[in-house]
Design a protein around this nucleic acid. Structure first.
Lengths: 255, 255
DNA sequence: CGGCAAGTTGAGCCAGGTCAACTCCGGTGG
DNA sequence: CCACCGGAGTTGACCTGGCTCAACTTGCCG
């Protein structure tokens, strides 16, 4: 594959075009080498990554879209244990034996699967790339840990507030407004937060009634009171206890 | 510090004496250098690691004991979001701003805090050490993800069963029996699994009544029926529905 | 062996799960 | 462009697992 082809394949990929991401940190040779030993893949909602495909290409980089790790219980209960997005790099080497989760796309997704050998070589030789990948993995770990904390003891409203804030943290800093993109469906959101779709629905409505946010569409909310949202996410009972039903409406204010 | 001192300081530490762990992978020079730029620390239950101490020594390796990441909500609810044990290496560089969790010892703990500079240098230069640390971080991430799945949708009994199995996976393979060490107190366990101490207590009793395990002491259980424990942890409702009360006792068998 | 923290047991209650009916929305074909 | 269709989301009514609070027991450390 010529150097020109490499450019064509990788030029449009976020991992290359965003200077903070992995492929942007590579030297020309490394990028070329990795390009020769990687395969891009487009997925649609419900597509899963597993088995042989994974054992041959266990390093997965996400260019665009949302990928989930789903755990399925015997009786059909499903859980989304983690969400991965643009820039995340998953190392699934030798993962099959320990982890029962499947990698499932939650919408249109573009990924790039890399040969472990070339990836390992870059990791060993390019400290800058190593740092990027290391920090990404560390973020994944801390995100998962924070998420555990969110779903362990928080109640429905608090979980939802935390999720909106998590989306806010992860989304591109567009700089303009307080409109937050919700990149997953209601069902997925429910599975991610360990609750029912019905409860998610009621929760958003409740947050709207409290004047904390507006549900613009199924894909976006607008934060109207960030400080309040934070306090709810943080388990402040003074806020929660002000009931949010339309009947007993009350002007919200800070203490 | 002479080479002899280095040996004295590190010889008794699991990270050095266990060949699979980080310090065992270092060259003589690297070990010496790292030893000069690290501080061991003994902690007791409730001691926390924070602030300046962390910003100067943000790389923490655990020699012995159990360390938790605890998240505290405004109204006092506490969650243990993750548990770290022997061999785990925590990279807490630049962590203060994103993560509200505190690092708290759950009992007697020995840790070693390393200077980030030397650590980074080893990571860049010693591929073998890099691999060990990388895989440890990856394990931490997947453990956290699995844990999210455990607490999201499982009910009390299932969470407990999962926890016992998690302990089984993490504990030294002593090879002999099915006695599993429970390295944390009931309260901590409850906080880790997102439930109340009372529920933990009732859960263990229930598992005993079902003949799945014996609670030997507060610190250990003996698995009597591993397959059943696995099925419970896996959310098999056929098993759960056989009520475990002492009254309606019933010989458990497989389908 | 006394004192206190940790754990257990019991009774009652409520947040959120469940089930069923309804509405909304996006895509498709006439 | 609109009518239709099916899946996704919402709403309502009811029910239950596990939280709560309080009293009791156990285990641990000096």
């Amino acid at each position: 594959m010529s150097s020109h082809d490499v450019k064509k394949k990788c030029k449009s990929c976020a991992l290359y075009s965003d200077s903070k991401l992995f492929c942007a940190s590579l030297s020309g040779n490394e990028l070329c080498d990795l390009s020769d030993h990687s395969r891009t893949l487009s997925m649609k909602r419900g597509d899963t990554l597993e088995g042989d495909a994974l054992s041959h290409w266990p390093i997965v980089a996400i260019d665009d879209g949302v990928v989930s790790i789903q755990h399925l219980l015997q009786d059909g209960r499903k859980t989304i244990a983690a969400l991965f997005m643009r820039g995340d790099i998953l190392d699934l080497r030798n993962i099959s034996n320990r982890n029962r989760g499947a990698l499932v796309a939650l919408g249109k997704v573009n990924i790039c699967r890399m040969a472990p050998k070339v990836f390992a070589q870059i990791m060993a030789e390019n400290p800058n790339s190593q740092k990027i990948v290391w920090e990404n993995l560390r973020d994944q770990a801390f995100r998962a840990i924070d998420h555990s904390a969110d779903i362990a003891k928080k109640q429905a409203l608090e979980k939802l507030a935390s999720f909106v804030l998590e989306c806010r943290n992860r989304q591109e800093i567009t700089g303009n407004t307080e409109v937050i993109d919700i990149p997953v469906r209601r069902v997925d959101l429910a599975e991610y937060l360990g609750m029912q779709p019905e409860t998610v629905s009621r929760g958003f409505k409740d947050l709207e009634n409290r004047g904390v946010l507006d549900v613009i569409s199924l894909k976006a909310v607008k934060i109207k009171n960030l400080q309040f949202l934070r306090r709810i996410a943080d388990g402040d009972k003074d806020v929660i206890d002000e009931k949010g039903d339309p009947g007993s409406f009350k002007v919200l204010q800070f203490g």
